[in-house]
Design a binder for these strands. Structure first.
Lengths: 307, 307
DNA sequence: TTTTGACATTAGCGTTTCTAATGCTATCAT
DNA sequence: ATGATAGCATTAGAAACGCTAATGTCAAAA
């Protein structure tokens, strides 16, 4: 049983040493246990010939089964131990960078304060990696923008983030109370990398409202965009929340867009296979907390942007 | 894992020593392992103060969970090992005495011949015990007559056994090609114990056809009834199949009943709980074999007896 | 009450599994 | 290319764990 748990951790982290540390044993012990597990099963579970350790096909299957098995065992143990109380265990979250490290960290801290038996790990990654992590059992849930009910993932809408026009404090457009898309005609703009969902939605928003800004640069990460805007005369459309701090410090200025543009954030998870629960108890608890505390205090009605 | 398997066997057999033998270890080892399991869980699983060892409430819950878990693990292991072949493991069957030791044994032998990796154990018990065994996870499936979709068990009809009038070879009624219920008026009869379902159905059959035999004795077991009939002038209504041998040997005579009376046999099983399969792979295979080979060569249409 | 069967307990031993140290190899940076 | 680095494999020895055998205890049956 403990060996399965070790396997699960090794597989998710793609590392013997990390998993070993986590279990309080040496890397050597982990290696030996995994070898003997493979011998028992008569199957190679890992591909050791590549450096971020990979799983073989059999390993993938075994990982999926193990996750389910372990969760089930934990549930059983909890039931038998008569604990109606908090579940224990870990929740692994993969989030896109721009989900807001500050926001998620605040939520995480509040959560572990309320449920001290649960450990929450958040990894920030590129959107593609988030989907992949969820599909490959490397995490319990993912947080992405514009969640798509893609094959192999389920979706829970989380919140709509209001987008705002961002520019240097001295920029002419920042004088106004709000900016309309047509005001951006001919304005130099910094946008997201075109293969990020958010970039496609912004372009679509602009095109449908007849705006044709000059896209000067494209970055795949919010911080770089903020830096670019702060040091040039370009503008950008970013989630208002992500620039709050810079606005207060006077480094950037933000102006409301008219009509409003929102970026939906959502939780994605691997949908239940035949007969398994979508989340483990710890993960479910966290999702509930996330929905409760992660929504905007006063959520405005979500406004659809024509695709 | 192996400990869970041991627990499962101990719980089902209500015996440390038997389970230990089954696992090729000493009773002492089994005792120690179970103690340590209890310590790990922080719960008492067994009630050791009664002699056929009992399970505590927590033990019952844990057993149900373990069964599920172990089956799931076996499935996973098989998948990973790339075996699309026969499942391995044990199938535990509880059957009523009168299901026919000869019939079931023949089926069992045929089955293990075809699937050598599967072990089949059949226990013959009283009907109540069979239901209890199924409900309490002590077996994978049960075989009973007049299966009732009682709470907590699922039902698969297996076969209808034709009932016949049985008497000493010299008895007047055995001269005839068939016997009608009214012919039994005033005849001395040996019947099943009234709290067996089959007895209630026979009485109901007789009453609805206006027959009023004199019920002289009541036994809860077919062999005793056969003995009683063979050594007195009483008659009995028994499944024809169960007296074939005695008829051939000239110890008993059997005559068809008109209208026909049948006793349905069925398979009972504990219905799937949330998300678990109704049978393990080995058990499913056996059930399929049972249905295939356990039905009468030419099954006559089942004839309902008004309740 | 006595007997019997079954579980608990203990000590000692054997196997398993761990650690520590070292070697090997894939990746990365220069 | 070439060396540096990180991570896994392998080994031997040590610690830990689980098993057996023997004995004690208690519930159920006679």
């Amino acid at each position: 049983m403990q060996t399965l748990r070790l396997f699960s951790d090794v597989a998710r982290r793609h590392s013997f040493s990390e998993a070993a540390k986590l279990h309080g044993i040496t890397q050597s012990a982990a290696s030996q246990r995994m070898s003997s597990l493979e011998k028992r099963l008569g199957v190679t579970l890992f591909d050791r010939s590549v450096r971020p350790l990979a799983l073989t096909e059999a390993g993938e299957i075994f990982l999926a089964g193990c996750s389910e098995l372990l969760e089930q065992y934990d549930r059983l143990q909890r039931r038998v131990m008569g604990l109606g109380g908090d579940p224990s265990g870990s929740v692994r979250v993969s989030a896109i960078y721009s989900a807001g490290i500050d926001l998620l960290e605040r939520i995480r801290i509040g959560f572990v304060a309320a449920h001290s038996t649960v450990n929450v790990e958040i990894h920030y990654q590129h959107p593609e990696k988030v989907y992949q992590s969820v599909r490959e059992h490397e995490c319990d849930l993912g947080i992405v923008s514009y969640p798509q009910r893609w094959r192999q993932v389920g979706v829970i809408p989380l919140r709509d983030e209001v987008m705002a026009l961002v520019a240097q404090p001295g920029h002419p457009l920042t004088r106004r109370a709000s900016v309309r898309p047509t005001d951006l005609n001919g304005v130099r703009m910094v946008n997201f990398d075109p293969h990020l969902p958010v970039a496609r939605h912004i372009r679509s928003y602009l095109r449908h409202h007849g705006a044709e800004p000059i896209v000067e640069h494209q970055f795949d990460n919010i911080d770089t965009i903020k830096n670019a805007v702060a040091s040039t005369d370009g503008v950008a459309i970013l989630p208002r929340r992500t620039v709050m701090q810079e606005v207060e410090m006077g480094v950037l200025a933000a102006v409301a867009l008219e009509p409003q543009l929102v970026r939906p954030l959502g939780i994605i998870f691997r949908p239940p296979q035949r007969g398994s629960e979508p989340f483990g108890d710890a993960a479910r608890l966290f999702v509930e907390y996330l929905i409760e505390h992660g929504r905007l205090p006063a959520t405005r009605l979500r406004q659809e942007v024509p695709a």
